[in-house]
Amino acid sequence: MIELRYFAWLRERIGTGRETVQTEARTVAELVAQLAAMDEGHAMAFADLKSLRVALDQELADFEAPLAGVREVAFFPPMTGG
């Protein structure tokens, strides 16, 4: 089981800010493929990975990063702080 967090327009497209999924994915990219196949909202949210960022247990990571030992995966658009 892995805890997922979504923020900004990603959260709006998917329709929730958090969900838990059962996964065999070994990398972020494999997890994204699984999520994109879930429904139309997820497919739309994950259509363009270049416009997305990912954090593993609250640390920025890349899409090839392994998921072993990770509890929380967050997906969001590029940040606009300051």
């Binding site: 900004a8 920025l60 658009p77 590029p78 940040m79 606009t80 702080g81 300051g82």
Partner: peptide, 12 residues
């Protein structure tokens, strides 16, 4: 400021 803009997880 440069880091807050694009590395702190805020969305406006």
């Amino acid at each position: 400021m440069d880091y807050l803009k694009s590395r702190a997880p805020f969305w406006k």
